[in-house]
Amino acid sequence: MTPPHPIELVCPAGSLPALKTAIDNGADCVYLGFKDATNARNFTGLNFDDKSMADGVRYAHDRGRKVLLALNTYPQTDNWSSWTRAIDRAADCGIDALILADPGLMAYARKTHPQLRLHLSVQGSATSYDAINFYYERFGISRAVLPRVLSLAQVEHVIANTPVEIEVFGFGGLCVMVEGRCALSAYATGESPNCNGACSPGKHVRWEQTPKGMETRLNGILIDRFADGERAGYPTLCKGRFDVNGETYYAIEEPTSLNTLELLPELARVGVRAIKIEGRQRSPAYVTQVTKVWRAAIDRLQTDTAPFRVEAAWMAELNKVSEGQSHTLGAYYRPWK
């Protein structure tokens, strides 16, 4: 089965080596951010300055691939100009599209750099075609990235009712909350994905071996405690174990990754135009592994005449790099909700 449009594979690049390996292993696009709070993966040691971004863009363009810049946090009054300057810098670098969430920034980009293609970030929390069409009518967005909340039938319904290309998350760390609608990290640490580009930031994390086990804390708040032999995960605050009515469990979500590989034919059938791999904070090795598998799967889908089949080896490779070594279909699978 060949879908009417090829599906683009959009891979994460937290660094120049990650960008290069994504391109070398078959990414159609890479997405990246500047080294500051203008993007939602504002972590120490990650991301690009003007020089590395220019190098990255050249590397991608020389090979006929695209580079998308994530500027998907919300500026405040006093730092507004850092964000508009980032848009200008990106335009100068020859970026192929901007991934934005803030409507004010969209208006700025439209006016100042009318040639630049605009994508609506997942941080824009647009979950219906009416929401997406608002950005289309006001700013002429070309693509929207859907929050990880809709079932497959709902994704199909959105696509049927908008001229905007739809990109969905295919693999990687799973936000259980609607992106752009979560202030849990701000509540615990004062820093949020929306305003600071960080969730459960490392500088607030403490690992402590105690007589009761390894404890992980976020700004002093106990997120989880691990017995000897249990693998202690990073204390992302929605993936800890908590006590609800005397029962201790993963009350919000287990440490697990989204993996929609088996849904690929369905995603293609409903008209999804691009699949995003999460993980700009992950290593180049992760990017290599995940890009390879998804490239192979998309190629098989788009070129093979035989029915699509997920290779056991693909799943094994992906599980190796999954959070908690497990995966879920998330909201695409209705009972998950």
């Binding site: 909340v149 809709l150 259980v176 202030a183 509540y187 929605c238 909700k337």
Partner: peptide
């Protein structure tokens, strides 16, 4: 404070029920 919204229902999850 209303801090977050999800596709998932955490009350249903607490009771091992599905949202629907």
């Amino acid at each position: 404070l209303p801090l977050a919204f999800s596709a998932r229902c955490f009350t249903a999850r607490h009771y091992n029920l599905q949202k629907d």
